[in-house]
Design a protein around this nucleic acid. Sequence first.
DNA 1: CATCCGGCCGTAAACGTTTACAGAGCGCTG
DNA 2: CAGCGCTCTGTAAACGTTTACGGCCGGATG
Lengths: 353, 353
Amino acid sequence: MTEGPTITTIAQRAGVSIASVSRVLNGLPTREDTVRRVMRAADELGYVPNSVARSLRNRRTDQIAFAMADIGNPVYVAMVREIQPLLKEAGYRLLIHSTDGDAEDELGVLRGLRERYVDGLIISPLRGVTEEHIEAIVAARAPVVVIGALPEDMPEGALVDNVRTDSRTGVRLALDHLHVIGRRRIGFLNGPLDTVPGAARAAAYREALEALGLPYDEDLVEVGDFYRDSGARAARALLARVPGVDALMCANDLIALGALDVLREQGRDVPGDVAVVGMDDTDLASVTWPTLTSVSLGSAERGRAAAGLLLDRLQNGPREPRVVVVRPSLTIRGSTTRPGTSPRAGTSPGGAR
Amino acid sequence: MTEGPTITTIAQRAGVSIASVSRVLNGLPTREDTVRRVMRAADELGYVPNSVARSLRNRRTDQIAFAMADIGNPVYVAMVREIQPLLKEAGYRLLIHSTDGDAEDELGVLRGLRERYVDGLIISPLRGVTEEHIEAIVAARAPVVVIGALPEDMPEGALVDNVRTDSRTGVRLALDHLHVIGRRRIGFLNGPLDTVPGAARAAAYREALEALGLPYDEDLVEVGDFYRDSGARAARALLARVPGVDALMCANDLIALGALDVLREQGRDVPGDVAVVGMDDTDLASVTWPTLTSVSLGSAERGRAAAGLLLDRLQNGPREPRVVVVRPSLTIRGSTTRPGTSPRAGTSPGGAR
DNA sequence: CATCCGGCCGTAAACGTTTACAGAGCGCTG
DNA sequence: CAGCGCTCTGTAAACGTTTACGGCCGGATG
């Protein structure tokens, strides 16, 4: 297997030094004649620069990584779809780390930044940003964007931007809507409480009930995982315990899918008997029957914002950390209102700008 | 921004040469005392090896790329889900290229192999493997696995393995099934004919009809894109032209979603009035209502096979090109048979082993 | 005691670039 | 004609590793 041509090969063939070759290839001012000779030689040899050598010298890899819990979750796919074109546009390649929610893996990715195989990282930590995460970020000395909650007291040296949403308001929007359509016994199917979204949504559910003057009833709450079959299990348990429940708030769309499965299986009408609301407003929400009312947490927008913040830091150098907050909205579909009688979809939050 | 420690820093602190440092860090036999001193210094300095420098020297990047048409398509997500863990296990990082079906982009990825930023590539070319693709693969001199059809006459030097499925048999399975349940006017909603799957499925539809002794009727065929809204348009057009159609064969699940939308909108019962079959058997198929009977082309299996072939080549060196063919199967769900009366799902192809 | 051998270690080269620096050549000016 | 300054080019160092090679030192052997 013959090795490919290098600038040295070109230099020999063109009868110039490697410095001249490099200058020509990088478009630095050079005598017309030299340019032609080098170009000719490069063409004939089919030269392609070695990106690793270039990276070593330039101290940049033109690569960016995106680390998330599970590429099988449409939320993250939606983010990738926004991130990828922005990075490509800016000349960066994209690496994907799907950590399966494994905290060790997540830390591994952050610590790996010190190997300098990427110029920056977008990470969405499922279990929250711990002391160890922060240490790793500071030690990395490469820009990081965290999608999700970030502690208040980040140390000075941390090159970290933050994109978050307000799931509190999101849950609030959903429960307000359910209240408006007359539901009073609103069950809640949550994910694990030791995840950031799980904990936040649990608190938000309680608060929203209180704001509506509804009592908090432990029997109306089920905790499982963020998957469809877990959602089905939870729905089954809750329906058995409280047959009179008239709405199910689900902590993500996958859980809602499971709930819909069970409701159909039990012959309960949706939304007649039980209204269902999902969360994340993924592509799946428009596929189910009835279609799924869902709280949009702006996945696409969060992806775009994260990529934008990272590129900005890479291109314009150090600056103060920034936080972008994406406002949730409620997309109303068939699982809470009969088609025809429904208000328009895509309601915005009612709060102040 | 202070630069991180290198083996030179360690060597100074430990009072040894950089060669010894390297040997210790790589576990080569070294005197006990030296090992301790180096390890100590490395720990104190928080040393992490620079992966770029290592790559330059070792001529390997420990990175593999996967190029596909659209990361938004669940088929490719299914593949990524299988590929990623296998690569991680073997110590490789994964790069993602979503080319949007742009032929130029695709070629760009292949040509980019010569920059040596990855050790291998898995690619699923939407528009087929052209002369230019082959040139690029030969020039790459890095192993490539193509998911999809490959020309018969690949040149000698091409380091290329191939994973394919047999969509001909897949379509055949679906049409046999529709025939068995009594359908005779079977429409076909296809994707673009200038894509590999589009062309293959068009031919397969014709052949399968013939095998069943059904006439081929141009009016029963619509050509659009592989997306949901395009599927809806096609279904609308076909239903208007041939109101008596009693089944719709769809060239992928997204098209089938669009068809289901239209059928529901027009109040036609599925499968009573019109049976629907999708293709790819993505996660979506179990989400719709009725759930979607779909031809499984073994996306997960194809992903696994591709990763396996590539890793084998990387680990065990050159060998003859291999081809893996994944057999399609039919997953029967509610869009062709009423629940309760349905045979078990997951039928295998009837052909010879 | 001279010789040899084996185990460790340090020097230096190599991977393929980019770039600081200085020298060569040349035209212009005083 | 000396001197200056400009443009272009080549030499060499640097990025951070791995590794071939040879030297040194100790102990074992004749």
